[in-house]
Structure formats: C-alpha cells, structure tokens
Design a protein around this nucleic acid. Structure first.
Lengths: 159, 159
DNA sequence: ATTTATGCAAACGTTTTGCATGTGT
DNA sequence: ACACATGCAAAACGTTTGCATAAAT
C-alpha cells in the first residue's frame, strides 16, 4: 500500500522561486511556506496555516495569509484542493499529479497517483471527445485501517 | 459522443416522494423542483434557482430555497456538486452515477458515466486498500466542440 | 389540532478588498 | 526610490439559524 510518503517537489528554495517571479521574500511568506512544508502530508486550511504561523509570528494578518497562499498557488508551489468541503485546503505541490482519498470514518486523507487510476485521458477522449487538462478528484470511502476495524472516531480532514 | 441526454431518474412525482418521507408539499417546493427539472442538463446554483423561482413566485425567500435544496438532496431527488467552484450546483438525480467534464473554454458541463472511467473501485482497493464509497470527480479540459475550433467565449458553468 | 414550512432579519465562516503604512529590492 | 507586501477594518460571498407567523396534514 503506497501510503504516499512521496518526494515533495524537491522542496524548492522559496526565495529563488519568488524572486524569479519578480516577487518579494518576506518573513511572513517564509513562515507560511515553512508551516506547509513542516507537515507535507497534511491538508491544511487557511485558518490552520494562520494558527501555525502565529506561533512564530503572532501578528500575521489573515489577509496576508490568504494573499500569500494565492501567490504560492499561482507560482505552482502549493496545491489547493477542496476535498468536498466548503473551504480550501493547501499542500506543497508534488512532482506527480495525484488525487485524494477521504476516509469517511477517521477523516484521514490519502493520495493516489493519477496514473494509478488508469488511462483517464484516453477514456474521456473516447467517451466524450473531451481533451483532459486538469482534474480534481475526491474519493470518499474507508481507508485501509478503518475498513475492517469497527469502532472509530470521526475527525476533520488531516493527514 | 454520448452527450448525455439521459433519462432523468424517471422524473419521480415530487408529492409522493415528499409525503412518503413525512414531509409536506408546498407551493415553494413544487416551484423549486419544477425549476430544476425544466433544465435537467444544467447545473444551477442556489442563486440561479431562486431567480427562476421568483419569476413565478416573486416572494420566495432565499432561506426557503436553501432549506428546500437540502431536503431534496437528503431525499435523493437532487444531486449537489461543486464543480471545483466555491458554491454548490444542483441537478436532478439520475439513475447512474456520473461525473463532470467542465470545458475551460466555453464553460459547458458534460457528464461521463462512472462506469466509463474503468474499475476505479478495484484500482483504489489495489493501490491503497481503500474501500470506495462515493466520489466527486471533476475533470477540466476542452469539450469536443472547443478542442479544435479556436475562437470561443468564456461562460459560467451551465449545460 | 398539530406539526412542519416559511419569511424575515440577523449571524455565520470563509475569503476579498481599499487604503494607508511599512519593507524588500 | 520605487514597487510591492502588509495590517487593518470593512465588506463580500454563499449559506445557516432563531424565532414568530402561516400553511399543510
């Protein structure tokens, strides 16, 4: 079971990536980025990110967090997902496109590589003449741990 | 190209479905349902539904619309999707589970039957030991019409 | 008569914005 | 010095809720 302890996109130097795009490297941006890479397998909401950043930089403003997340997504450093919820979750971008398995019992979120799902592009082309670009695929069900062990505590999306 | 002019879940008699569940049949609920079945291939937001209902029943309150949509989703008469956006879209429930192809050029939304995507349940089980329940799959790309014809006008999600 | 649904207004959680100030380059 | 980023407060957005009234059963 590839529980996806993947190589995180070569942990790109944040400063290089930002400066290369004509953007500036600030303390806030570094802290926000650091919070994300510190928990690369979790899917953090803007709020959770703000909370973690506040531990080191107590005065960050929420709007700065939102603006920075937008920038990092635009630069391709972060991935934004909705996981079927009404708010966004963020994770460091990875080398291979992947999708999410949300356990309805324990809340855990796993990854599947897109290629493990078969030739979806080919199937969509064949079925509808559709030229696949991106996709946001969220699967709900029971994770390997929960599928047989009966009792379980419900949680919110995390790792 | 099965452009999905599917049979809409046998257009269940709304009154029967509601009364059978101990719920009441009101003018508002009938109008909301009618607005949805009048455009079975579109994906309407709560707001767009309210607008259509107001044409026949000008005083409906938005909260009534939201509450009714919740009821109809709970009763399995409607499907709720997010289509990668930050608000919900509704469509009459269909017989077969399906997923969405969103054209990034013209905004059109097509359907693919789940079975046309291959044995996803089997693949997820094999890859991660995951027991698939439901899924919300949104594919982005170019629809058959847009994929070669260059010029196009961007629109919001519709049929 | 009873119980459920509606309208209204207010609140909610998340995210966005305008503008003056502060900071990286 | 300049452009860009931040803090702040306010607002926008989609949605939910409490409560009195109205309507369906």
């Amino acid at each position: 079971v590839p529980r996806d302890s993947d190589h995180v996109h070569a942990a790109p130097a944040l400063p290089a990536a930002l400066r290369g795009a004509g953007r500036r490297v600030t303390r806030q941006r570094r802290e926000i980025w650091d919070a994300l890479v510190a928990e690369p397998d979790r899917h953090l909401s803007a709020d959770e990110i703000a909370e973690r950043v506040r531990r080191r930089l107590p005065l960050v403003n929420p709007s700065t967090v939102y603006r920075t997340l937008d920038v990092l997504v635009d630069e391709g450093l972060l991935l934004r997902t909705r996981l079927g919820a009404d708010r966004a979750f963020y994770e460091p971008a990875r080398e291979h496109p992947h999708h999410h398995l949300v356990c309805e019992r324990c809340g855990r979120v796993d990854h599947v590589h897109e290629e493990a799902l078969g030739d979806l592009a080919g199937r969509l082309d064949a079925a509808a003449g559709f030229a696949l670009g991106g996709a946001e695929l969220t699967f709900f069900g029971l994770c390997a741990d929960c599928r047989d062990s009966e009792p379980g505590s419900r949680t919110t999306p995390g790792s």
